[in-house]
Design a protein around this nucleic acid. Structure first.
Lengths: 341, 341
DNA sequence: TAAAATACCGGTAACGTTACCGGTATTTTC
DNA sequence: GAAAATACCGGTAACGTTACCGGTATTTTA
């Protein structure tokens, strides 16, 4: 079984033309039943597989979707799983590229995917990405594009994202409800939309309750456990230290948690903590960490569905915007009182 | 910029043949300097990109590597990152498929990758996989294959894997050194090679120290936190309960840890615990969990390198076997005495 | 200055498949 | 039983690129 059998091999052995074989293998249109069966039988016997390259070249589509993501953490790999699920169902193969949160790598990845002639691209931008020329190039080539999770207003394309503002609201309202008054926030990089939105929710909630916003309580740092640890240490040495911290990721919450424990403070008594993403780890550390969940798997599936709808309908969906709702999971790190009825 | 420019467009506007354009764009062989420059300039202007499909069809290679993995957990996604790194460097694009630990899905994935005409496949088998006909089909088609991490002797192909026996030895020796005598093991599914090997290391070490092996202390369960939790609860209700547990994954160690805490036992005083993989989480739970690390990123890189070497040299490497050494990280969960000098 | 070597270029086939058109043979219609 | 419809099939071009061969025009060699 050295070489893959082709349509020509079948045609030759059956003494018919390749056109007829081609038709027999697919449509059953304009082909006699017995010849069709003969073709089918031989194809089976030779283990014939149509050559996708030839078909792709001819039809100018590869049935491949490129996905660019900043990393493969819990949330994103769950989203990818969702995308995969739906894409596979619809007959597409998915090509995943990680940018490792690097802008340069993101450029290379987009170039590579365009070069691979993918039918479309789904992207979640890296935290370093501040300009979007490479994304525009995708649109210039008339290649369908959907952005998800880490979106940006400058990108003209359908968006699928979490209601990040609402996420910030949920966390902050909950902390206030638990009697915390001086709430700090560990936000992410300033150019990241998801970070700003979550902070917006935090700010809105404080304003709504007539609380003063302290600049010192707003820390921008990398999505990184170590940075969060350092930042929290700083926060806790302030003369008027915060009595609660909202971090926009669970990794950061873990870092904060370590700093808090090291300082000898206890959660939730002395200080409250709420993270974001509801990663499994939040349930495993002591104390458990409250966290805002995003429906990652769902988001992946919806993104892929929207994408496929766009591919099929060919209509302009640039203004489409799907927003999913977050959900707060309350755990030990912030639960001082059981909820009043 | 509607349609992608082709070599034919360039040829036509320059009034030369496509052959010449093709040569000009690559070799500079048999082509006058000025025509080459003219071609280059026009190509630049039209933003010409060679069509990979056409080239792949002609050359019968796609410069794509398919990777099949059971999931995207910490270890495997780190390995994929390593593969990606090396593959990209060598001009290959990587197509990752998850089997979700499902045999059926693994079949679909291999079929899909073969269908996509990848130049080769790198695979780590799912925990459900007990027969390897689908893998044989890859070999039948003469497509280079490397297995890594989750390998199996039945697969005829180069193997890259951890010295799992040594991992089991490291963990068990350490527990004995710490004075634990009755060591139980939470092993994985029985058909999984990595599980059996780690257990082999455990058994060897006990034998070496002249200790009796208790059947009751060997539990086979799924790679799952919940199963590990239940299994540990059972273990701890035995009249002669173990005083240490070695789990072959960190997920399982977490489950065990929960059961231990629930039972009111303390680590490392009452009971010792060692996990496997050295996932970040081991450092974050209380107590920290000792764990055997495998050099995942390195393993990914080595796998890809071996693979590319195989592709280039075309020689038979089926007997190649690369074995990487694990390393034990000792933490609170098993450290009763600081090491004697 | 004729012969040989070289520089440069074009034509054709090929990779595997499908779309389209046209052409026989067979069947249907009245 | 002739005309019209239908069933079935084959040939050709096309997708974009490169390998190979052969052919002029120019340069080198003696």
């Amino acid at each position: 079984m050295e070489k893959q059998a082709t349509i020509i091999d079948i045609a030759r052995t059956l003494n018919i033309s390749t056109s007829t074989v081609s038709r027999a293998l697919r449509n059953t249109f304009d082909v006699k039943a017995e010849t069709r069966e003969a073709v089918m039988a031989l194809a089976e016997k030779l283990n014939y597989q149509p050559n996708r390259l030839a078909i792709s070249l001819l039809k100018r589509q590869t049935h491949t979707i490129g996905v660019i993501i900043p990393n493969l953490d819990f949330v994103l790999s769950t989203m990818v799983k969702g995308i995969d699920e739906v894409a596979l169902e619809a007959g597409y193969t998915v090509m995943v590229c990680q940018s490792n949160e690097s802008f340069g790598r993101e450029l290379v990845n987009t170039k590579r995917l365009l070069d691979s002639l993918v039918d479309g691209i789904i992207v979640s931008v890296s935290s370093e990405t501040k300009v979007f020329e490479h994304i525009k190039k995708i649109k210039d080539r008339n290649i369908p594009l959907v952005v998800f999770d880490r979106v940006n207003k400058e990108i003209v394309a359908p968006h699928v994202q979490l209601d990040n503002v609402e996420g910030g609201v949920l966390a902050t309202e909950h902390l206030l409800e638990q009697g915390y008054q001086k709430i700090a926030i560990l936000a992410g990089p300033q150019n990241l939309d998801i970070s700003n939105k979550r902070m917006e929710g935090y700010l809105n909630t404080l304003k709504k309750h007539g609380l003063r916003i302290k600049k010192d309580f707003i820390i921008h740092c990398d999505f990184n456990q170590d940075y969060a640890y350092e930042a929290t240490k700083e926060l806790l040495t302030m003369k008027n230290r915060p009595d609660a911290i909202f971090t926009i990721s669970d990794r950061m919450a873990i870092g904060a948690s370590l700093a808090i424990k090291e300082k000898g403070l206890r959660m939730p008594t002395d200080i409250g903590l709420v993270g974001f993403n509801n990663e499994p780890i939040t349930k495993l550390v002591t104390p458990n960490i409250s966290s805002v969940e995003q429906p990652a798997f769902e988001m992946g599936k919806i993104t892929a569905k929207l994408f496929i709808e766009m591919m099929n309908s060919k209509k302009d969906m640039n203004n489409e915007e799907i927003i999913l709702k977050p959900k707060l999971f309350i755990r030990e790190s912030s639960l001082r009182f059981t909820k009043k009825v």
